[in-house]
Design a protein around this nucleic acid. Structure first.
Lengths: 208, 208
DNA sequence: TTAACAAGTGAAACATGATTCACTTTTATT
DNA sequence: AATAAAAGTGAATCATGTTTCACTTGTTAA
């Protein structure tokens, strides 16, 4: 008998897996999924293409992992804004959630665009759908609670939740993908926030 | 000297061009852009792949033409609802525009999904952007006029217009793409309409 | 009926990546 | 050392289409 994996070996495997994922995410963040090819990744990490297949079954799986990794963090932030530890009224929560989303999207280079709007192959589209649904679900729950608390008018919370995702995607993320420089982020976020609030509450708070 | 194209010849060319475009649109309507390949189209029309290149420079151009063709008709309908010949108040116009869009999307099999949300290659994404912008532009103008008429509250009409496109895409078209059968279209359209109206006017008319 | 050109053909060449696999290198055990 | 197993390699192969092009067929005018 002979070889057996040791702690050190296993550690190295984990580290390399991590390196690959991180490098892949970096590519996506800078250049989008469109630029995430096996050979590009291999070159970037300084290994052979074949090696990547010792860590991932397929490119689809690699993409999926990258997606999940990026997603998790983003969704968590919005969830926290929507369901904070303190008691905060629902209108403020909604405001915060939308603001956090918008703010992070603007700061994220191409990442928000890659996750939400960049054209990708149909396999990944399913992953993306989950991502959008995660947001929509958070919003829906927030809206539902707001309705119960009599803060928001009666409405179909699921549809309103999905609609908010659409609003954010179309008014914020798609422009980001066009390489349009956001000349006045504050103003843009403010307008989107006003729209979302009015859409859910029916009231325009601060005339802009 | 010898050959010169005649009226008959030219006519035939036009007809074939038309046949190709129509067949391509049929494919997209049934199975999406994903199914629109040169050889599929050639087979369907009963000609050789090479022949198609006598009518279109490239697949990109073919797709673009199909897109324009489908787009034109759709946008026209929404435009007409938004700017009718008679004097109608802006809230009603908005209601009509949203309803027309939703109704046509639901009836259109996969077409609405193909035009708005189906993953396509980046070349076509530009074409699609124009399409979305066409809608956003119509909505923006409608909203602007509504503001001037003091019917709608002050708001950034361009952002509100884009946001409405996002709402429709996310709450209606994306589900259509999932092959989800709309069990209750009336109810769905009604919810979306209510959302859009509240988002723009700030008022919930009919509590649902 | 033939010269001149357009329309049509479809097999072969291209393009773009993903994926495989026979082989080399490294690591661990006896 | 000798052996076993995993990690790593990268050129070759596959998969999916698009696009070309030498060639055949159809059409028109002289």
């Amino acid at each position: 008998m002979a070889y057996r994996p040791t702690a050190k070996t296993k550690q190295h495997r984990i580290e390399r897996f991590d390196t690959l994922l991180t490098a892949a995410l970096a590519i996506v963040t800078k250049e989008g999924f469109q630029a995430l090819t096996i050979s590009h990744l291999a070159t970037k990490v300084g290994i052979a293409t074949g090696t990547i297949y010792k860590y991932f079954d397929s490119k689809a799986q690699l993409c999926s992992e990258v997606f999940k990794m990026a997603t998790k963090k983003e969704v968590e932030k919005v969830k926290l804004a929507s369901f904070p530890n303190q008691k905060i009224n629902y209108e403020t929560r909604l405001t915060n959630a939308v603001t956090i989303f918008a703010d992070r999207a603007i700061r994220s280079e191409r990442l928000a665009y890659a996750l939400i709007a960049e054209p990708v192959d149909p396999t990944m589209e399913l992953e993306r759908l989950k991502y959008r649904k995660a947001y929509a679900g958070i919003f829906a729950q927030l809206i539902n609670e707001g309705i119960v608390a009599k803060e928001f008018p009666q409405q179909n919370a699921n549809i309103s939740g999905a609609a908010l995702v659409g609003v954010l995607a179309e008014s914020l993320v798609t422009p980001l993908g066009q390489g349009i420089k956001i000349s006045n982020a504050i103003e843009l976020i403010s307008s989107i926030r006003t729209f979302c609030l009015r859409a859910i509450t029916g009231v325009t708070k601060h005339q802009q």
